[in-house]
Design a protein around this nucleic acid. Structure first.
Lengths: 359, 359
DNA sequence: ATTGAGTATGTAACCGTTTACACGGTTCTC
DNA sequence: GAGAACCGTGTAAACGGTTACATACTCAAT
């Protein structure tokens, strides 16, 4: 069957001890040119690959990194994992990937599984980076980790993210500058996303600063389900004056909301401007292009694991690192339609263009 | 630091031998009620989690499955991985995920890495499932694997897929029935995708059966790059009569092509019908909805790892399993516009509706 | 010639589990 | 009441690497 060839087989073939073979493989000490050549030849002939398991057991350190994300089917997470994976591969590490399906209660179980696998460290996106027993446990055990997308507020933890509140505030201000007054914030469940909460805060800040009264937040499940989203919108629109713009706490939600709005017979952005958050690649392919806050998703993953590798080598920084974002104000964002009920529908500035990051 | 607590610590605490602890944990033999209770109490108090590494070294069998896909950022692969992951989690297995970036030359290296990690088996999507030294190696080593999306033609290998040629033939026939005569097939690189090749064959079969001459295939890179795609289309349209419909070998490519077509000032589906293949979720959210061949992507992943688990228990079937697909003929697919150059632009049947699978 | 430093190599312990085997105690059978 | 059968438990040997330590050898300096 598999793997009958061990370091002992190689040693026998090369006519030396297993210690010499190990030293040649790892370069931990020099062997004579002659011995090294024989070992390398034996390895090649036998197609020997040292077992990571044997190595790990002795060193109590694997070359494996655990990844925990809410879902693989949301491109924003898939993209960060792609960045993590590429960087890990270059550094000779493998990735154990698990999803929590947006369920905070599942975080502990999947992390336990990964810890049992003796991962060298973890990269995670969790529901709440502040009050989080799972992260506390990792701290207590001394297992290094870096958060992605999460933005801890009270407890210093290593994280790579953007300024979620600031970016959403800037985005909201842009909508206001386009003449929008009734702006609805549609959020993924607050209980499963600190980003959602922080972005909502940015929205509230912008609305308050402009002297506008925020609409009650519409909290929806993450599952892109256009019919359900349409139903939610319809009941909402029946109850109060229809907003002229919507900010969705993430791009996938925005795309689903756009589909729902159109299914109601409204045009985007003619009747309704819609903006998202994340900058998923698909957003640039749809027509009109999705207005959003563009985060460097792939880079954020890559940067996170880079910091994790630094921690393997002793780094202890727990800074929340903010990468620059970029407002993409196009396509689904237009000036507010003239409001028959309001006195002065301010003409918004021309759509399009972009703003520099405030990071 | 981490993990000072081993099975020996537990044994000491419970006042028994490590063998008894192991037996309680694994239920491989019965312990007295008294001993079992003490062991369980000790495990709980010490928060003991048996090391997967120690276990694996002894049993030479991990609870880990390797996954190899071309890319994480193509939702069609992310979706199958989501299915694999969910099913693996239920069965107590972890997932080592790696991407080849569509480079067949990289397949061997990533599989070698996974084999060195002593994975129990693999789920892969490769460039060429027939002539593939990496898969030959897995066969030789007796390491179980199941392919997803791949559809081996000559060599029997375990696979979960759809009838790629048949589905594309049916899709092409639907376009022909809508009055299209000049139908262009746009493919991802043949060298990195057997699906692409098989789907093209289905297209050729349908065109041939209808007595139509196929257009030369347009082979493009997988990276969604609307400007590059637009340039390719413009040079093509300059050289010959513009097609009225395009079939793209996958949905992501189709979305990019639609963006390029629109950037050229053409309307979809007014001037140009476009269809994809895969059934990614985003395709239902864009306007108009993307016409495509809907594969049960998540289920395909789940089914693949289910077969892998069967193989762990001795199953040896190497069947290529075809799951049902579903033509989604909507949105981006319309009747061909009247052709000024042709004599009789047949009126196509009404758009919309769907066909039963031919699987 | 003796010592010391340095180098190449081998021996064996160890990492945390599983499990074959041994052993002592109880219960059953005749 | 002797032996068999069974049961719960412990001891110790793997599994495939890494590495501390010991050893043997070479060479330069005294």
């Amino acid at each position: 069957m598999a793997r009958a060839v061990t370091i002992r087989t190689v040693a026998e073939r090369a006519g030396c001890s297993i210690a010499t073979v190990s030293r040649v493989i790892n370069g931990t000490a020099r062997a004579s040119a002659d011995a090294e050549a024989r070992v390398r030849a034996a390895i090649a002939e036998l197609e020997f690959r040292p077992s990571e398991i044997g190595r790990s057991l002795k060193t109590l350190r694997t070359r494996t990194v655990g990844v925990v994300i809410p879902s693989l089917t949301n491109p924003v997470f898939a993209s960060s994992v792609a960045g993590i994976e590429a960087e890990a591969r270059v550094r000779g590490h493998a990735l154990l990937v698990t999803a929590t399906d947006y369920d905070p209660a599942r975080e502990r179980a999947v992390v336990d599984t990964l810890v049992a696998q003796s991962v060298a460290g973890l990269v995670l996106t969790v529901a709440d980076p502040d009050s989080n027993p799972t992260l506390d446990m990792l701290d207590a055990e001394g297992i290094p980790y870096v958060l992605v997308y999460n933005e801890p507020q009270r407890i210093p933890r290593p994280a790579v993210t953007v300024d979620n509140a600031g970016a959403t505030r800037a985005l909201t201000e842009a909508l206001i500058a386009h003449g929008h007054r009734r702006i609805l914030f549609i959020a993924g469940r607050f209980s499963s996303s600190d980003r959602s909460r922080l972005r909502h805060q940015g929205y509230l800040a912008a609305m308050g600063a402009a002297g506008l009264s925020p609409e009650p937040v519409l909290e929806l499940d993450y599952i892109a389900d256009a019919p359900a989203h349409r139903a939610a919108l319809e009941s909402l629109f029946g109850a109060r004056a229809r907003p002229t713009a919507m900010i969705c706490s993430n791009d996938l939600l925005a795309l689903s909301i756009i589909a729902a709005v159109r299914a109601m017979g409204l045009s985007v952005p003619g009747d309704m401007s819609v903006a998202g958050f994340d900058g998923i690649a698909i957003g640039r392919l749809v027509t009109p292009e999705l207005s959003t806050v563009d985060q460097p998703t792939r880079l954020m993953g890559a940067r996170a694991i880079e910091r994790l590798f630094d921690m393997f080598e002793g780094a202890t920084g727990r800074a929340v690192e903010h990468l620059p974002y970029h407002l993409r104000l196009t396509g689904t964002l237009a000036a507010a339609p003239p409001d028959p009920g309001a006195a002065s529908p301010l003409p918004g500035p021309p759509a399009g263009g972009s703003c520099a990051p405030a990071a």
